[in-house]
């Protein structure tokens, strides 16, 4: 193979590389190591453990809160996740089904956030650019 030829083993990142939201619910796009089965987020081009190939996988949209904090800074956008502009929550979430850990904004109130609490992924609109709403991946406490 010459360097100008595409490598058939090289994965391509999806256009919307990390998540998308539709009427049927949110999807978190990840990668899965073809050799180990380990999953990663956001999607990787190769398996970070083996250097081998990965395949696209939809990750669990629920998980367990590993830790959290509350950032006392003005929200960077047009919409505050908690309805104010004082600050916002952040959390590290271990996705279910042996999924990866990711860091994201937390929705809800501080009373909702406890280590070990079940959380669910949500789309959080934060800004409008050229008339198009922009969203980020967020989590909130799962309904009991």
């Amino acid at each position: 193979m010459t360097s100008s030829e595409p490598n058939p083993n090289r994965s391509k990142l999806p256009e919307n590389y990390s998540f998308d939201d539709s009427a049927s619910g949110i999807t978190i796009h990840g990668s899965q190591s073809d050799e180990l089965g380990t999953t990663y987020w956001p999607p990787r081009l190769r398996c970070p453990q083996t250097g081998g190939s990965v395949s696209p996988v939809d990750l669990a949209t629920t998980g367990i809160l590993w830790s959290w904090s509350y950032v006392h800074l003005p929200w960077m956008g047009d919409v505050a996740p908690n309805g104010d502009d004082e600050g916002y929550g952040v959390g590290m979430v271990d996705l279910d089904d042996d999924g990866p850990r990711l860091a994201a904004v937390l929705m809800g109130s501080r009373d909702d956030w406890h280590i070990g609490a079940p959380v669910t992924a949500r789309e959080l609109p934060y800004k409008t650019i050229d008339g198009k709403p922009q969203s980020i991946l967020a989590f909130e406490r799962s309904a009991s």
Partner: peptide
Amino acid sequence: NVEDISPILDPFVPPMAFFSMWAVR
């Protein structure tokens, strides 16, 4: 400026948030 940066440099989880989550844990 959110439009200015790569999504990999997550503007919503800055270093202070990251280390504070270490502290809460």
